[in-house]
Computed example of a mutant assay.
Amino acid sequence: MQKTFLFLLFSFFIVSCSTATSYTKPENVKATKQWGVVEVKETVKSMSHSLSVYYKTELKTGYFEWSPLQNSTSEHIDTKLITNEILNQLTKDKVPFVDTSVRADATKEIAFGKTGMVSSDSRLAVGKFKSPSHQIKGEINEVVNYESGNKIQYITVTLFLVSLETNQIVWSEQTNFLKKSRVEGYGF
């Protein structure tokens, strides 16, 4: 009897201390009090579709470059995650991008190739860089109010496409979220 009790107590201890991890599809995740999967997925879906359509119907040529998104909210938001997901979707939609941050490394490699120490079949050619014609910029902003124990948060994600040649904003899109969540300990 005592051995059975100790076994059950030990089993309970092991089970209660173990951690379980599970995965779910991002489409099935529910909204949370913090910025999360729901907001990222909705932003990526609306922004990438709108920008892809604009590129294919209006611009039809040129290369895009990203400028880091600015997070002006009180929440920690991984703006690089949003950028990467939009970039990934637009690349799948055949919208062309350039990454000017690799120019210095590429320039060094081209110079090294000219030394004769690199075989001609893998040497980088001079004059092949592409310049961005447009830059994507963006901001995440919020307005927060507290009413009757609830936090009401209006969040906007805005992207702009700016022509580098004219500095004109040629496209803009916004995704909005109105989140209402109960605040613990409100009124104390």
Rank of each mutant, 00 (worst) to 15 (best):
V40R: 08
V44G: 01
L59W: 08
V44W: 02
G62W: 07
K41M: 13
S46Y: 02
S48L: 02
Y54F: 15
E27D: 12
E58K: 08
K33N: 15
K30H: 10
Q34E: 15
M47W: 00
Q34I: 04
K33S: 12
V38H: 01
S52H: 02
K41N: 11
S52R: 04
L59I: 12
V44L: 05
K30Y: 15
L51P: 00
V38Q: 07
Y55I: 13
G36D: 12
S46G: 07
T32Y: 04
G62T: 08
H49M: 09
S50G: 09
A31F: 00
Y55V: 08
V29W: 04
S52Q: 03
Y54M: 07
V37W: 01
E42F: 00
Y54P: 03
P26Y: 07
K56F: 04
P26D: 05
V37L: 10
K45N: 13
E27N: 08
E27M: 03
M47A: 10
P26L: 08
V38Y: 00
E58A: 09
S46D: 09
A31K: 09
W35G: 01
L51A: 13
V53A: 07
G36Y: 10
E58Y: 04
T32I: 09
K41D: 13
T57M: 08
Y55N: 04
K56T: 01
P26R: 12
G36H: 07
S50A: 14
T43A: 10
F64A: 11
Y54G: 10
E39Q: 15
K33W: 04
P26A: 09
K60E: 08
E58P: 00
V44D: 01
K30G: 06
P26K: 12
K30M: 13
T43N: 03
M47C: 04
F64N: 09
K60T: 11
K33Q: 06
T43Y: 01
H49K: 05
G36Q: 06
L51E: 14
K33T: 15
V37E: 13
S52N: 03
K30V: 11
K60P: 02
K45D: 06
E58C: 02
N28C: 03
S50V: 03
V29Y: 07
Y63Q: 05
V29F: 02
K33Y: 11
V37A: 11
L51C: 06
V44E: 02
Y54S: 08
K41Q: 14
A31D: 07
S50Y: 03
Y63E: 06
L51S: 08
K56Q: 05
V29S: 12
Y63D: 07
E42Y: 00
A31Y: 01
T43G: 02
F64D: 03
K30C: 00
V38N: 05
T57K: 15
E42M: 04
T61P: 00
V38M: 05
K30L: 15
T57H: 10
S46N: 13
Y63V: 01
K30A: 14
S52W: 04
K41A: 05
E39N: 15
Y55Q: 09
A31N: 14
G62L: 07
L59G: 10
K45M: 09
P26G: 06
G36C: 06
H49A: 12
V37N: 09
L59E: 11
Y54I: 11
E39M: 09
T61A: 05
Q34G: 13
E39W: 03
Y63F: 12
G36F: 12
H49Y: 10
N28M: 13
M47Q: 12
N28A: 14
Q34P: 02
T57W: 02
